[in-house]
């Protein structure tokens, strides 16, 4: 059982969680992720780590409610528990002194890019962050990103914050000015694909973090396979970051749509009785604690 020790609403539909998970907190590196399962009947969902505090034994995740599990998770508060959290999984981000790096992120992707940006800065890079969102109320961790960046540009689709436009507009300007040596792009697939297109002409190394569907997260099932340089790679163990110029984004989009119908049905069921679902989760996890205590008591006897 993994207790939630603090939460914070960071944007509309996006919530930050600090979760007690000492083993993961100790080992976490930027770019890695965890897999969570909320309760006994839950699915396993990968979520990128936004930070960790090894001393306090906590990890931070920032969650956008887009599927049943993430929506349900976002209804939980400090004091609630998550049944299973496993990690840190995947390879950490590549950290070295590339020169000038552009860290491009969209919406909740900013939370995932943030720890890598911080590490890149520590490694001596000039870090230029380009933070985007559809609208002002979907921007996350803008202040944190500013703190670790030499320059920060904010863009929104509707112009409610920063400049109006897409993140690729700014990236294009920087690339044209010949200012960028390395790019990390984290966000929705269309955004990452667009970034890859911008940097392709000048062959600037661009890494993207792929959010494919996973089950175990250890390489055992192969469900997260993505086509990279025309060969099958497992996002969970070979990634999640890959060289964007080699990623087949069409296959990624197609495979991410595999369970569209079931996902829709699950969300509808949750929305029919959200409070009931939260109650069910709390009850189920409480029973787990009781069962465990009973076994421990018996073993002690």
């Amino acid at each position: 059982m993994f207790p939630i020790v603090a939460t914070r609403q960071v944007a509309r539909g996006i919530k930050l969680f600090e979760i007690k998970a000492p083993r993961i907190a100790k080992k976490q590196r930027p770019g890695q992720f965890v897999i969570v399962r909320l309760d006994d009947t839950g699915e396993r969902v990968p979520l990128t780590l936004a930070d960790a505090n090894p001393e306090a034994g906590t990890i931070t995740i920032v969650v956008q409610g887009i599927g049943k599990t993430t929506m349900l998770l976002n209804m939980l508060e400090a004091g609630d528990s998550i049944l299973d959290v496993v990690g840190p999984l995947g390879k950490p981000s590549e950290i070295e002194n590339f020169g000038t790096v552009a860290v491009v992120s969209g919406s909740v992707g900013t939370a995932m890019a943030y720890p890598t940006a911080r590490e890149l800065k520590r490694a001596g890079n000039k870090v230029i962050s380009i933070v985007g969102a559809r609208s002002k109320d979907l921007l996350v961790l803008e202040d944190e990103v500013r703190e670790v960046s030499d320059e920060t540009y904010v863009l929104t689709d509707d112009g409610t914050a920063g400049e109006k436009g897409l993140v690729t507009k700014k990236l294009q300007e920087l690339v044209d000015a010949g200012e960028v040596d390395y790019v990390l792009a984290v966000g929705p697939v269309p955004m990452m694909r667009a970034c890859a297109n911008v940097t392709a002409a000048k062959q600037i190394k661009t890494m993207v973090s792929l959010n494919s569907i996973m089950v175990d997260g250890t390489g055992m099932c192969g469900g997260c396979r993505v086509l990279v340089n025309n060969s099958s790679q497992f996002a969970c163990v070979d990634g999640p970051e890959f060289d964007a110029s080699q990623v087949n984004f069409d296959v990624l989009v197609q495979r991410n749509n595999m369970y569209r119908e079931q996902e829709k049905a699950s969300i509808e069921r949750l929305q029919a009785d959200p409070e009931g679902e939260v109650r069910k989760l709390r009850k189920s996890n409480a029973q787990h604690v009781c069962a465990l205590e009973a076994t421990l008591a018996e073993v002690a006897k």
Partner: peptide, 23 residues
């Protein structure tokens, strides 16, 4: 892969969807 199919069905009880969430 058989690993994924069986993991979804067995470990994740996907044969009992929607009672269990894994599709």
């Amino acid at each position: 892969s058989a690993n994924e199919f069986l993991t979804r069905v067995n470990l994740m009880r996907a044969y009992r969807f929607p009672e269990f969430d894994e599709p």
